[in-house]
């Protein structure tokens, strides 16, 4: 939930860029990404494969690939600069104040440690108290994430649990140190839809209860529509559109967002037998010098001006922006479409 009267945001990201050195030159996987996150807020970072949604978000907590160079004008968590933080201090923040949940619970859990050990380990590693206290909190959290017989579950190994239960354990581990921010990278992609809804409701509940902020990395607009307060749409390493999730999904203002939403078959529409909309072409190579709008080679509205730098951020309503010179026209069009339906 966005709070309106706070002094400063929990997280401030200004012009974050990530470059990866390769044998054939530099690849820019993140270009001038800026956003703010308020305490308790849910931000969805959405994009297709190769959009840089994971690498640029993991870079916040220093989990970028070794060869990557991360730069930013500002990267502040509660006013502390994450970029210049020494390694040991970053480790204190990571897991303690910012927790990360990965896509596949099988690979993020240690197969040879019991569930209990993995929960307790986090608490002790951050020096938050005694083993007895850790155990107490672990059992409390396992119950809190909806596992019965928590004391018995503590003695089980990950392979004895179903995928949904494993992801609950991962969430409980992430909660051990009362983080202020959870970064969840496709937390439900490996799960069945029936379990997905449960895990998302759980995240939302925990978030309300413990006043945590959540950054949700996803490719699924269904997930965005049902849980996010705000959304950041990434394409080829850059933000093309951002704003309140419901507004962006209802009336996209960037041709990429609008094209992407139109590709998705909808349960509500009777479109059987009709071809689905597609986005022609492919994501461009991110090697070398990039300039202008990177979507222009796939965009029906592209014109010479789209190749020149910089593409302005166009404000399109309260808290919304789109990086497109045609943003206003597209917004008017998607509004008309919605009105016509």
């Amino acid at each position: 939930m966005p709070t309106t009267t706070q002094k400063r945001p929990l997280l401030e990201v200004r012009n974050l860029s990530t470059r990866i050195g390769a044998s054939h030159g530099t690849i820019t996987v993140g270009r001038d990404i800026s956003y703010e996150l308020n305490p308790g807020e849910t931000l969805a970072i959405v994009g297709e494969s190769g959009s840089g949604k994971s690498v640029n978000t993991m870079a916040l907590v220093g989990l970028q690939p070794k060869r990557a160079t991360v730069t930013a004008d500002k990267l502040a968590f509660e006013g502390r600069d994450l970029l210049t933080l020494p390694r040991d201090q970053m480790r204190t923040i990571r897991g303690n104040e910012i927790s990360v949940i990965f896509q596949d619970p099988m690979t993020s859990l240690n197969p040879v440690l019991t569930v209990g050990e993995q929960l307790i380990e986090v608490y002790l590693a951050h020096g938050l108290g005694t083993r007895a206290e850790a155990e107490e909190r672990a059992i409390y959290l396992l119950e809190r994430v909806g596992m019965r017989n928590a004391a018995a579950r503590m003695r089980q190994y990950p392979h004895q649990l179903s995928g949904g239960l494993r992801q609950r354990v991962v969430i409980a581990i992430a909660m051990m140190c009362k983080p202020k921010l959870i970064i969840a990278d496709e937390p439900t992609t490996a799960l069945d839809v029936t379990v997905q809804a449960l895990i998302l409701s759980l995240l939302r509940e925990l978030q309300d209860e413990f006043k945590m902020a959540l950054i949700l990395i996803t490719h699924d607009f269904g997930v965005v529509a049902s849980i996010a307060d705000r959304v950041l749409v990434l394409y080829a390493g850059g933000v093309v559109e951002s704003g309140p999730a419901k507004d962006v999904i209802a009336n996209p203002a960037h041709p990429y967002t609008s094209g992407l939403l139109n590709c998705i078959p909808r349960m509500e529409d009777d479109d059987r037998g009709q071809p689905l909309n597609t986005i022609p072409g492919m994501v461009p190579s991110l090697a070398g010098n990039l300039h202008g709008c990177l979507f222009r080679n796939r965009c029906a509205l592209a014109e010479p001006a789209c190749a020149s730098d910089p593409i302005p951020e166009v404000a399109v309503g309260a808290g919304r922006m789109a990086r497109c010179i045609h943003a206003d026209a597209i917004l008017a069009e998607t509004r008309a479409q919605e009105g016509g339906q």
């Binding site: 029936t194 809804a197 449960l198 269904g222 965005v224 529509a225 049902s226 999730a245 998705i264 909808r266």
Partner: peptide
Amino acid sequence: LRSAHLSTAPHQELPKP
């Protein structure tokens, strides 16, 4: 199964299935 499906409708609420 049907109610667990997350649609992209902007006023979607999380299902409680």
